[in-house]
């Protein structure tokens, strides 16, 4: 009977250890690379926005240029993400495609909403332009982080906390002097995503 008891105890411990490894496999493995990638995109995107003058001497706003920088960077990163997931993801789920579709639809809808509002936006002068693009930056960050939060709630994982933390970081950035905002976001936002990648890597290494 003692043998049975000890065998059962060992088997239960073993099962618990491997259940944890299974969960971590689904949640963490390979995600660190994607966090580094997107951390790099945020860093380069916000850093380049910091150096692009927001109002040219001819009185022309540089908004479309900022848009273009982000669109190119995000398209490249999205392509790498999809290819990485297809080849290296340890766990596949039919919901993965739906999550991907959700991301694209979300940005498509943001594009529609903004296109509807743009004709009524009248940015007057460099000072207003400075504040407007900072607020626009927070808007785009909060849209991305909203997607993180939805995925985190759906998959019951750490993405929820990454989303909430980076939204808070972006909102706090509005309290800084406006010219510092993009530099602050490059360091704290891009750096925050790299930290999330390091967290994922550490958690995976623990299993």
């Amino acid at each position: 009977m003692r043998d049975s008891y000890e065998n059962a105890q060992d088997a239960l411990k073993d099962a618990e250890v491997f259940e944890q490894r299974g969960k971590r496999l689904a949640w963490y493995k390979g995600a660190d690379i994607l966090f580094y990638l997107w951390g790099g995109v945020w860093f380069l995107g916000f850093l380049s926005c910091h150096f692009i003058p927001r109002w040219l001497h001819g009185g022309k706003a540089t908004g479309p240029l900022i848009w273009a920088v982000w669109a190119v960077l995000m398209a490249i990163a999205a392509l790498i993400t999809i290819m990485h997931d297809r080849r290296h993801s340890p766990v596949e789920n039919p919901a993965g495609k739906r999550i991907g579709a959700f991301w694209f639809l979300l940005y498509f809808y943001v594009f529609i909403w903004f296109s509807l509002l743009t004709p009524f936006l009248k940015i007057q002068g460099p000072e207003q332009s400075l504040k407007f693009w900072n607020h626009f930056g927070v808007l785009m960050v909060s849209v991305s982080m909203f997607a993180y939060i939805v995925v985190g709630l759906w998959m019951k994982n750490y993405m929820l906390w990454v989303g909430l933390a980076l939204t808070a970081i972006a909102l706090l950035g509005l309290l800084l002097p406006p010219p510092m905002f993009f530099m602050y976001m490059a360091i704290s936002g891009g750096g925050g995503l790299v930290c999330a990648g390091l967290f994922v890597r550490t958690r995976w290494a623990m299993s």
Binding site: A15, V17, F18, R21, G22
Partner: peptide, 8 residues
């Protein structure tokens, strides 16, 4: 079985 059942 522990790994597979731990997944969704």
């Amino acid at each position: 079985m522990a790994v597979l059942t731990a997944l969704e």
